[in-house]
């Protein structure tokens, strides 16, 4: 089976506050994520994207429908550890997911829990820190690191469990532009070089441009799904659900209105400028 994550008619509601109606956070999500794919899941706050992410390694269990992780039903409790080993999760707040006060000890936390032999843990910790480019910090205290560095440590902690897939649940939301770049470059490299499946949950549109596939969520449903060039150009629809299109797309839309014959899907700065220059010449 080449799907790492598959959901079918997935529904979920959070327990309601006293005297209130339960609000359904997921209203029937059917989604398959193929192995090796870089998927970005977009949506405004409250669209259900984080709830969906938390189903991907059994932090939350479906209320209705089913979630399979590498063919394993997440409701099967005997498979819990295996599911969580295979799909690692990186969260939003870098401070609240680091367990130890030495970087390498923290990276070792996952393998230690899995009962990996000591020499093997050492090898994995070193390899994981190298993979995120943090090997020189292995004996540092995490609270002295920058936000981006902390998130890279969190990613290393996940990699040390040798997962097939990493889910990043708004892991870039609290970072400055430099920290975001560090994290994005790291996951992109892991995806390309190690073939690790990436599911990145975000509301930054520019992060979506680099994905293989963009899934847009709104009020508990998947409303758009496709390659970035097909999705990010739908300016009006994106705005209507509280998102934005990249400025490049906004510009190209505008220029079309002005009567310039430019394509809409030149997402990157170089492509966009190239397309405009070409249109100006002809």
């Amino acid at each position: 089976m080449s799907d790492i994550i598959k959901t079918e008619h997935l529904t979920f509601s959070y327990p309601p506050d006293e005297g209130k109606e339960p609000v359904q956070a997921l209203k029937g999500v059917d989604l398959t994520i193929e192995k090796g794919c870089f998927t970005v899941i977009l949506g405004h706050n409250g669209s259900g994207k984080s709830t969906l992410a938390k189903h991907m390694n059994a932090v939350l269990l479906p209320e209705g429908g089913t979630v399979w992780v590498d063919g394993m039903d997440t409701r099967d409790e005997s498979l819990l550890l295996e599911i969580r080993r295979r799909v690692g999760m990186v969260f939003q707040n870098p401070d609240n997911q680091i367990v130890a006060n030495v970087v390498e000890e923290d990276v070792a936390f996952g393998p230690e829990n899995l009962g990996v032999p000591t020499e093997e843990i050492r090898r994995r910790v070193d390899a994981a820190l190298r993979a995120v480019g943090m090997e020189e910090f292995c004996l540092h205290a995490p609270h002295h690191l920058s936000g981006g560095q902390k998130q890279r440590i969190a990613i290393a902690g996940v990699i040390a469990m040798e997962p097939a897939c990493i889910v990043l649940d708004e892991s870039t939301a609290m970072l400055d532009p430099m920290g975001r770049r560090e994290v994005l470059d790291t996951v992109r490299r892991l995806n390309r070089e190690k073939g690790i499946t990436i599911a990145l949950i975000t509301h930054h549109m520019d992060e979506a441009a680099m994905a293989d596939r963009v899934v847009v969520m709104d009020s508990g449903r998947v409303v758009m799904d496709g390659p970035p060039r097909k999705i990010l150009v739908r300016l009006e629809e994106l705005r209507a659900i509280g998102l934005d299109a990249p400025h490049t797309v906004e510009l190209l839309h505008g220029l079309r209105e002005d009567g310039l014959d430019v394509p809409l899907d030149a997402l990157s700065v170089t492509e966009c400028a190239g397309a405009i220059a070409q249109a100006l010449q002809s």
Binding site: E250, L255, V269, T270
Partner: peptide, 29 residues
């Protein structure tokens, strides 16, 4: 720098004669 400014800079590099110091979509348009 703003994405629009980056596009404008790239355009100047490609030989399009405009002010590269624009920073909003409306200005560049």
């Amino acid at each position: 720098v703003p994405q629009v400014t980056q596009v404008a800079m790239e355009l100047t590099r490609l030989g399009v004669d405009i002010d590269p110091a624009v920073y909003t979509v409306a200005d560049l348009r």
